[in-house]
């Protein structure tokens, strides 16, 4: 596979949320508002790219027997750095994402890409893979969060679209609504990709 296809596969074909269904816990928790979905997506992407890069570079050094602890240390280091940087430079986002930033450590997308891809692939492919999967994840999160925000508050990115007369669909702001919205979006994405042969 070429570098380009490693990148593009993450967006639809192997989309982490709608296809692989990985990392659903943070998805359900943070996608109440579009900006949180975007913020979480970018934070996860940053960690994913860094960890893919480092793990790919070190793939011949890391002993097979302790590869998982090594991956976790590398991932946890980047997550903690992102957490500190967010706290210092984007305090509002940090306060909102709260516990879900440190929890990126156990996001299965990142460990999954490390184990299944970066530990076996050259650096350029790993970087492309991290970027693609990360972009797909960010887009999915932003899309899901936008739908939920629109239904629950009538706005997207805090810009009111449906006017004051809109009666908010409160359930979409709560965790059950997250499942509903995710299921509906998943069906829609499947239907569209079948229709337009995006496979």
């Amino acid at each position: 596979m070429s570098v380009m296809s490693e990148f593009s596969k993450g967006i639809i074909k192997e989309n982490a949320v709608f296809r692989l269904m990985l990392g659903l816990c943070p998805i359900l928790a943070v996608t109440t508002m579009a900006e949180f979905g975007l913020g979480m997506g970018i934070a996860t992407t940053a960690v994913l790219i860094c960890s893919n890069l480092v793990i790919s570079l070190m793939r011949r050094i890391i002993p097979t027997k302790v590869r998982i602890p090594s991956f976790i240390i590398i991932i946890a280091t980047f997550v903690t750095m992102v957490d500190m940087l967010l706290n210092a430079y984007l305090p509002a986002l940090h306060a909102q994402l709260g516990i879900f930033v440190p929890l990126i450590v156990v996001n299965c997308i990142i460990l999954g890409r490390a184990e299944a891809f970066a530990s076996k692939a050259p650096v350029s492919h790993s970087l492309a893979d991290g970027l693609g999967i990360g972009l797909g994840f960010t887009l999915s999160l932003t899309l899901l969060a936008s739908v939920r925000e629109l239904l629950a508050a009538g706005s997207i990115f805090k810009i009111n679209l449906l006017g004051a007369a809109y009666e908010p669909f409160m359930v979409f702001g709560s965790p059950p609504g997250a499942f509903l919205a995710l299921g509906l979006l998943m069906a829609l994405v499947n239907m569209l990709s079948k229709k337009y042969k995006l496979e």
Partner: peptide, 11 residues
């Protein structure tokens, strides 16, 4: 020993 040293260096 090699495993231990690599892990230690990563840490």
């Amino acid at each position: 020993i090699r495993t231990g040293i690599v892990l230690m260096l990563i840490c």
